[in-house]
Simulated assay, not measured.
Amino acid sequence: MAVRDAFTADEWRVVAAAPFLVGMYLVSVSPSGPIGVVTEMLTAEKAVTLEASRPDGLPIVQEIEADLIAGVLTRDLGRINGRAGTQERVLVELGRALALVEAQAPAMDSAFRAWLYREGERLARVGPEADGRRRAVSDDEAAALGILADMLGVPR
């Protein structure tokens, strides 16, 4: 049985948005201009693709990727503007996705949460500094990662 079969179509759209919600949340706490936003959101998309392409990748992520490719799902979750309202909305939607996975696909829950956190950590480090070094995680991003860790129930 496919993981997505545990959900209605509307629930699956909520669950499948989770990786992009993590990206939106991190982008919203430390917006870095239009190019930075695009780079970070492309990194979120790439994380899905990379996990899905691994032979031992999470089945839930593989199914999200398959539905994105088929056009059943979309990556477009709305505008990112760095306002607290955006951050709250994103966290509420992420909470809905997590609750659905926990209730209807419990075998995937802890691995999916851990993967989402790893994705968040990777997103926080996206983009080189002007001198070519890897970008340091800002205080705002570190705080956001702490909030994500608590929400996802993973160690920091």
Rank of each mutant, 00 (worst) to 15 (best):
R96W: 00
R122K: 13
K46G: 09
D109R: 14
G36T: 02
D140H: 05
G78W: 02
G36R: 03
E51Y: 08
M108S: 15
R54V: 00
V101E: 01
R118P: 00
E88N: 13
Q87K: 15
A142S: 13
V137H: 08
R113W: 02
L100V: 08
V61Q: 04
E121C: 11
V92M: 06
R96A: 06
L77M: 08
G82L: 07
V61D: 06
R125K: 15
A97I: 05
I35C: 00
A105L: 12
D140V: 00
D67M: 00
R83W: 10
A97H: 04
T49V: 14
V90Q: 03
E119G: 03
A142P: 00
E129Y: 07
G85R: 15
G57I: 03
P59C: 07
G132T: 02
G132F: 14
V37P: 00
I69L: 13
T39L: 13
I64E: 00
T43N: 10
A114D: 09
T74W: 01
V37G: 04
P55E: 11
T74G: 11
I69R: 15
G82T: 06
F112D: 07
A52Y: 08
A107Q: 15
K46H: 09
D76V: 11
V38M: 07
R54K: 14
R113Y: 06
E45G: 15
L98S: 08
V37W: 01
Y117M: 11
P128N: 13
T43I: 01
L116N: 05
G95I: 01
L98M: 09
E141T: 01
V72F: 08
R135Y: 03
V101W: 00
P59L: 09
L77A: 01
N81A: 14
A107M: 11
V37F: 01
I60A: 07
R83P: 00
R122N: 07
G82Q: 06
M41N: 03
G132A: 14
R83E: 14
E102W: 02
A99G: 09
G127S: 09
I69G: 09
V48Q: 10
E129C: 08
G127I: 05
V38R: 10
P128F: 11
E93A: 15
E93T: 09
V101M: 07
L73Y: 05
D140S: 12
L73R: 10
V92N: 10
L73P: 12
A124D: 03
E65Q: 11
V38T: 08
Q87F: 06
V90Y: 04
A70P: 05
V72T: 14
A44M: 04
A107L: 14
D131R: 05
A99S: 13
M108G: 06
G132D: 08
D131W: 09
V92F: 07
N81G: 15
V37N: 03
A142N: 07
D56P: 01
I60T: 02
L42M: 11
R134D: 10
D76L: 11
T39D: 10
L73G: 12
S138R: 07
G85F: 10
D139H: 06
V48K: 06
A114S: 11
